[in-house]
């Protein structure tokens, strides 16, 4: 390679490396601000000041969902399996919403420690499975747990 080309390539690589470092450090400094939501543990640890609007993300705790029969008011708990935060919400929930599903809610924590949400979004994972396969897997699981129950009772 000719010397002036080598020099040019060096300058380009240097500029690219410098820019990457700048952007990397900026993103690192932004830290928590780049996150879309806080986890229930972070909220329980008091990382969010009371009264501030923020988003919380976690799973809908099994058996925690209560809905009022005469309005759209619902109450449930969101958990990261360490801490749980109660949420109150009035409005239409996304189709995917159910117990055990990941959600992101926007709102603020009131004086009772309840998160009153103005918006609830459903978050889903990266696993896709056809309904048939899922049904077959569930049936196999049920069979397995039945068998293990039997073997325990036989003992």
């Amino acid at each position: 390679m000719k010397i002036h080309r080598k020099k040019k390539l060096g300058v380009i690589l240097f500029v690219a490396a410098g820019l990457s470092a700048t952007v990397g450090l900026t993103l690192f400094a932004l830290g928590q601000n780049m996150n879309m939501f806080y986890t229930p543990s972070q909220v329980a640890m008091g990382e969010v000041e009371t009264g501030r609007r923020f988003r919380i993300g976690g799973m809908v705790k099994e058996g925690s969902f209560i809905s009022e029969s005469d309005s759209l008011k619902v109450r449930f708990e969101t958990t990261d399996f360490v801490h749980a935060v109660p949420i109150e919400y009035e409005g239409i929930l996304p189709d995917l919403f159910r117990e055990g599903q990941g959600i992101v809610a926007e709102g603020s924590v009131d004086s009772r420690g309840v998160f009153s949400a103005s918006k609830v979004l459903a978050k889903h994972d990266e696993n896709y499975m056809s309904q048939e396969v899922k049904a077959a897997l569930d049936a196999a699981d049920a069979l397995k747990s039945n068998n293990s129950l039997q073997s325990i009772s036989e003992r």
Partner: peptide, 18 residues
């Protein structure tokens, strides 16, 4: 932490997700 799901792992077995 984002709303968007991560990339799916490649899997060829019938029982696993994906």
């Amino acid at each position: 932490n984002v709303l968007h799901q991560p990339s799916s792992p490649l899997s060829t077995s019938n029982g696993s997700a994906n």
